[in-house]
């Protein structure tokens, strides 16, 4: 949330909603990837980034993890895990990339579509999101970087991950506001940070350092 002069820090809280849709085959996964709402695609590709703030597991998205642990199709799991989330600015294009990856794999498969036991089924979920103001408001660019130091992980996640992809803002909220303040240099520097290769703590620290660097030059 921004206006001309102030940056209002919001936070977002999630409830997981169960869709009741489960699949046990790769063909089934392919079919439901096409049907489920984009909020389900977002949840299953982003859940791990908010769930914990340490070393990523081998498969940072739920689809890759399931293909590996339940279907034992390691090559496909690697391909799904390697999908560059930063390359997408709309959820529909990310959905398409997932479907294409599975399609290519299935078309090259010279055996029946892999299947797992019922107890290992993939359960599609989606999330219900609640956005609330944190009460933190930055009144200037310097104040923005000061407030950043104590920003919660959930708020950081909302303004960085959610704003860019799920809400379709194409960049993160911080960069949009800084650009509006005439600080394109800082906006670009923050936009250049890849949130998918950092923990939220590291991301926050890197943003704070960009602010310190700017003050040093001033």
């Amino acid at each position: 949330m921004t206006n001309q002069t102030s940056f209002i820090f919001d936070t977002e809280l999630h409830l997981v909603v169960l869709t009741g849709v489960s699949v046990t085959t790769l063909v089934g996964l392919r079919a439901e990837l096409h049907n489920v709402p984009t909020s389900s695609i977002f949840l299953h590709t982003h859940r791990e980034y908010l769930a914990h703030d340490f070393q990523r597991s081998n498969h940072a998205n739920d689809f890759a993890r399931w293909v590996s642990t339940a279907l034992h199709e390691e090559a496909l799991a690697e391909k799904l895990a390697a999908i560059d989330l930063l390359a997408f600015t709309t959820m529909e294009s990310l959905r398409e990339a997932l479907i294409n990856t599975v399609d290519e794999y299935l078309s090259a498969l010279d055996r029946p579509s892999p299947e797992c036991r019922a107890e290992e089924a993939f359960h599609f979920c989606q999330s219900r999101n609640f956005v609330l103001p944190t009460g933190l408001v930055a009144k200037s660019v310097n104040d923005f970087f000061e407030k950043m130091k104590k920003l919660s992980s959930a708020s950081l996640y909302f303004h960085f991950f959610e704003a860019r992809l799920r809400l379709g803002h194409r960049t993160n909220d911080f960069s949009r506001w800084l650009a509006d303040q005439g600080r394109r240099d800082l906006a670009d520097a923050i936009d250049g940070l890849n949130p998918y290769t950092r923990t939220l703590d590291e991301l926050r620290e890197d943003i704070v350092q960009i602010g310190i660097g700017a003050q040093g030059k001033a």
Binding site: L15, V17, L18, S22, A121, H123, C125
Partner: peptide
């Protein structure tokens, strides 16, 4: 409200996971 996705059923009402 269910504890795990595995417990979800085909229901006409919303199913939340907690």
């Amino acid at each position: 409200v269910f504890s795990m996705p595995d417990f979800a059923q085909r229901l006409s009402i919303p199913q939340f996971m907690v």
